[in-house]
Design a protein around this nucleic acid. Structure first.
Lengths: 209, 209, 209, 209
DNA sequence: AATGAATGAGCATTCATTCAT
DNA sequence: TATGAATGAATGCTCATTCAT
């Protein structure tokens, strides 16, 4: 479950400063990548929007792809952070699952652009980076797997064990769909949409409504 | 619901020749875009792979984006073609839905790369083109909407009418997920995977298993 | 004696045009490299001085190093061409050697800058190219070796066979010295200088003056 | 004939410290320049290899070219130092010349890389520096001139006076050739090579073998 | 004196598109 | 219609040098 945090090269020694500057960079880059895509965004634009000079940018990062990786990692961290809270709530497995699904969908709504960004641009990542990004996505799937098992054990969920993995994948897909297909989903009210998605997974998990 | 087929500019008069050459272009470009992505593919490469000269390419197309559009349109046509057959089969709404879902998932498996391509690269499309591409995708959603209504009418599906649209979207999302998340789904056997996905939607549609 | 001519990559199909344009490029580059050195010369400058656009330059060449290689090869060809004539003259080995040495020194005077260029910049060549450039230089050494053997055979030169190679090297070095050390040799009159150098080698070759 | 030692700018007052630090710098730079050439070596690399910070480097030197100059001067000093000893030996002019030539060739073998460095990179020196570097090289030539005159006077060398300068140049060139053309000379054994070179000059100087 | 982060002009190279033939 | 050479703006990245601390 723990991933070796990949180290991005930097010329700068003070780690706190590196953290800070990279935050600026990521902040600027997310915006730009969302607007124009990775390939149509220039490093010059990123530097400017970060408040850094062209050269300074490359003190904190070695390639443009590094920036994309930092962006993807940041987004996944954000998703996991927002999800973390709801996992500490009390309740049976089914109840916790419902909560988690709902939270996840909310996060997907809030972070539509960022999720889309990852799907659209991760192809541009060098393989090493891509592997880590996918691993981080799997961590979210892992959360749902754990909740499903919990529910199966406490009897609140009826599901053959060999369906757990696949359904956890579906749960994530169902949520991400909100981001992917937003242009088609704008017609629906938020609460209805979320309820439907959550319900869809719960039914498949054999939770009585 | 029908969209006027957008006209792509060409210098060439004979429409049959245009059709033919564009077929060559699309054929070459699909392959290249899948392998390297839209931005990393050069028009030179496309020309070469199409058996055209640099200049000739631009007789049949005005910009690189035109090619991407032709590619997306071609893929959607292919999807609809492959789906069309199963719609003429007899049976109640639920039965036809099951068939359609299954076929759709099969198509998604067969055309993984192409589906992924559309999602990853359509951002590069000029707005006018993007609109048409999305409209074509909606046509597939429309197919599932129609089947759901059919089932509701003949009593084989229990679903409040206001859920129809959303569920049709889910059906498409469920299928496309197979393409998007294939790296996570490689572990599962094809038949199991498809059955699960189809079942998921049918349950949500209130079809008794 | 024949070297596999290394092929430099080009986008252009017509070989005659390639030859022509590369001639322009080499012509411009020699001048610039002599003036400012390889590293201080920009490809833009070379393009401009060749009468080509930035882009066109790269239709005939793949990297800046390619240009340096073309330049070195051109210079060596020129040297060999100028030397070739005097080799067909009649006379005993010693006489032909004297002629060749004199011609070679003349060429070194005429091509001072170019010779210096090769020595100063060949370090920047990729290994494959460097090998070929050195091989071409060895061809000149080979000419002197052949003449020495000729003289030994016809009795006009007294030299143990195991000194032939080393002396051929010296002959070339003695000539190239005129290029390398011209700043120190400006003081001497051309004819005296050349005579001295030729004499030096002939003596070492055991030719009675 | 003596040149005012050029003053390189520095921010630092204590001359002993300047001497010390510059020694570090030169030591690091020689190595790097030999390996990668002047232009491909960055000041950052030099600073790091010297154990100095980026900023500190520029306290002891004003430009990158200053470093190259210091390096060249250092090398020449080293050459002269190594040569100095053999000049104090007793013997007639011819004998001393033979000794000096041999020592010089030995130094050239030992300092191949450094000699090559000077020839390849001195073009990058600002004119003022270049003049001094050439002047230092002439000092070595001067040594051989002096020895030749000594031999002429004591009768051990037969040479018209107007050939002295030119032959002294040749002596240096002959030695340096060992460095320049080492790729071609690897085939020969050291002692043979040196003996040949020394003999070549002695013959030209009219010293009976 | 020393540090090391910041600057920004500069460079090799690419590539969509045009156009003379 | 077709060819393929030409264009030139744009881009990712480097690095000598400066300067606040």
């Amino acid at each position: 479950m723990t991933t070796l945090a990949l180290q991005i090269g930097t010329q700068v020694k003070d780690p706190e400063r590196v953290r800070l500057r990279r935050e600026q960079i990521v902040h600027a880059a997310v915006e730009l990548f969302i607007q124009k895509g990775f390939h149509r965004t220039t490093t010059r634009e990123i530097a400017k929007a970060s408040g850094l000079s062209n050269g300074a940018l490359y003190e904190y990062v070695e390639t443009k792809e590094d920036i994309l990786f930092l962006v993807c990692r940041h987004i996944h961290q954000e998703v996991r952070n927002r999800l973390a809270d709801c996992l500490r709530l009390p309740g049976c497995g089914a109840e916790k699952l419902r909560q988690a699904l709902y939270s996840f969908c909310e996060v997907m709504v809030a972070m539509q652009d960022e999720i889309l960004l990852i799907y659209q641009e991760s192809k541009a990542l060098p393989k090493v980076y891509l592997r880590e990004v996918l691993a981080e996505e799997q961590m979210v799937v892992g959360i749902f797997e754990k909740l499903l098992y919990e529910g199966i054990e406490d009897g609140s969920i009826q599901l053959p064990a060999d369906r757990v993995s696949i359904l956890a994948q579906d749960a994530v897909a169902m949520g991400e769909m909100i981001a992917f297909r937003r242009w088609a989903l704008r017609a629906f009210e938020g609460p209805t949409l979320l309820a439907t998605q959550v319900d869809l997974i719960l039914r498949a998990a054999g939770v009585s409504p």
